[in-house]
Simulated assay, not measured.
Amino acid sequence: MTKSPSSTAQRASEALGQRLRTIRQEARITARALAEQAGWHETKCSHLQSGLRSPTEEDIRTWTRICGADNQAEDLIATARNIEGMYVEWRRLQSAGLTRLQHRRVPLYEQTRAFKIYCSNFMPGFLQDPNYITALFMLFTQFHGSVNDVESAVAARVERSKILRHGDHTFAILVEESVLRYRIGGSETLLLQLTHLLRTMTLPSVVLGVIPETADRTMWPVESFTMFDDRTVSVELLGAQVTVTAPSDVDIYVRAFTTLSEMAVYDKPARSLITAAIDSLG
């Protein structure tokens, strides 16, 4: 079974803690002596070394100064900042509204050549109809209690989706068949979304696969994720967005996407599942 995405950040924190431990041991200073010189409780050293507590920039500078390893401070600080960005709560990301969140990753999208996207809960962002985006963003805003800037956020997402038609990008997209039937925004909104899906799946840059509910599963449905050139993975949890960059962890998602794609149907069979979902709306 795949590890929890948040474990990537935890393992990175543990690796940083081990580096701090090694620096202390190489300086031949005990944890108690370091804590005394820093003016900390001894348990703080233990928590920093085990990854149970994230070090601040000041903590790192104090640690390296006492251990005579000031030359390692900047690298450790940069590592700590990267870890902080691996697991970010939606509450924090959406604190200034959804519009800013849409703009946040535009540079990454523009740099990426090959996108691999798997969705098990709602339609892929790049393929969403404006009405569907509005309904989805209203749900996000209400659930997370964030600033209501839905109108401008919808416009920003629509603008961001133009990358489907411009630039040297490819989009391999997988959705579970159940996603075609989730009535986000109601039946009329879903009808417009499914019709939009039939149009956008014909774009030269897009390969859309639908995993039938009747498929013999060789991989269970997992959390939705987006892969950027097989180097970075963004995983969407209910409470947070997780960024995965460690090669061994990225490989887990590469393998999962490959397995999921083998269960999917494409082209005419995929269109048949979409039209069947439309017919079910009456």
Rank of each mutant, 00 (worst) to 15 (best):
Q142P: 10
A215P: 01
V207H: 13
C119S: 06
R181E: 04
E151H: 11
G145T: 11
F171M: 12
V206Y: 09
L127P: 03
F143I: 14
L198Y: 00
V222G: 02
T200Q: 14
T214E: 15
T200I: 13
A153K: 12
R231A: 14
L127V: 02
F126Y: 03
Y118S: 00
S187G: 02
D168V: 12
A153T: 04
G186P: 02
R181V: 01
R113H: 12
E177I: 04
T214A: 05
T170F: 03
S224R: 05
I133N: 08
D129Y: 01
G167Y: 07
A215G: 05
H144F: 15
G125M: 08
Q128R: 02
K162D: 14
L136V: 10
M219Y: 13
D230C: 03
R157K: 06
V207N: 15
L203P: 06
L197T: 01
G145W: 15
I173E: 05
E159Q: 14
F122A: 11
N121W: 05
T141N: 15
A135C: 01
T214S: 04
D129A: 10
E176I: 11
S178Y: 01
A155M: 08
T189Y: 04
V210D: 11
A135N: 07
A215K: 07
W220Q: 09
R231H: 14
F143P: 12
S205G: 11
E188G: 00
H166D: 15
V222K: 02
Q142I: 13
H144P: 11
R199C: 09
A172G: 14
G185W: 09
Y109C: 12
Q128H: 02
I184Y: 08
E176H: 02
N148C: 14
A135T: 00
V150K: 12
S146H: 13
G145L: 15
E110W: 09
D129C: 05
K162F: 06
E110P: 08
S234G: 10
K162T: 15
V154I: 11
T195N: 09
V210P: 11
Y118Q: 05
R181Q: 02
P221W: 00
D216H: 11
P204G: 03
